[in-house]
């Protein structure tokens, strides 16, 4: 994997230096997963495509430079999610996933035990605690923790006020803390008892 990582670094450097072929190869390596991941946060394929193109154009034009440290994937994701927020702002709020569609579908795939180990879902009591959060709280956590956005950016992505993101993150942290402190493990308290402020 280290050869892959150094390959990505070489590509990034070549792209910043104006190598069009390197831009194409960087796109081939990263556009796929970026498209998938952005699509989970925006219902419009056009807006996602725009954000993906903007991401690589930003790299090409040197608007974003990799300063080393951290994975290239995380670096590209940081650009991509912010370009998506910009594209969403231009397109208007209707393109965001509504909470109802955002909720996982009925035809949910059951992850096999083997895959659970690999994915890390099985670790400790965090997974059931996360699963028990209300979709709104989970989305706020996702944006701020997993996506690495600031509160202001998360608010734009989710289409809510900044204060709402703050209070939801606060409530989510409280809920997680309570769930993890609960020695009983799987018998988690009902969402309603600690979902209120």
């Amino acid at each position: 994997m280290s050869s892959d990582a150094s390959h990505d670094l070489e590509l990034l450097r070549a792209v910043a230096a104006g190598d069009e072929e390197a831009l194409g190869r960087l796109y081939d390596r990263h556009a796929g997963w970026l498209t998938v991941r952005l699509s989970r946060r925006c219902s419009s394929p056009e807006v996602v495509d725009q954000a993906v193109q903007d991401t690589f154009l930003a790299l090409w034009r040197g608007a974003e430079t990799y300063r080393g440290g951290g994975d290239v994937g995380a670096f590209i994701w940081g650009i991509g999610i912010r370009r998506l927020i910009d594209a969403l702002r231009r397109e208007g709020p209707s393109m965001r996933w509504s909470w109802s569609t955002r909720r996982s579908k009925s035809s949910e795939v059951v992850v096999s035990a083997e895959d659970q180990v690999l994915v890390g879902v099985e670790h400790g009591r965090l997974a059931p605690a996360l699963a028990s959060l209300s979709p709104e709280l989970r989305a706020a956590l996702e944006a701020t923790v997993l996506d690495g956005l600031t509160t202001a950016e998360a608010a734009r992505l989710l289409g809510v006020a900044e204060g709402t993101v703050k209070s939801r993150c606060h409530r989510a942290r409280q809920a997680l803390r309570a769930a993890l402190a609960d020695a009983q493990g799987p018998t988690l308290p009902n969402e309603h008892t600690w979902g209120t402020t």
Partner: peptide, 11 residues
């Protein structure tokens, strides 16, 4: 998008 959210986070 057929994975439940927690598993998707892990992915």
């Amino acid at each position: 998008n057929r994975l439940d959210e927690v598993a998707a986070w892990s992915v």
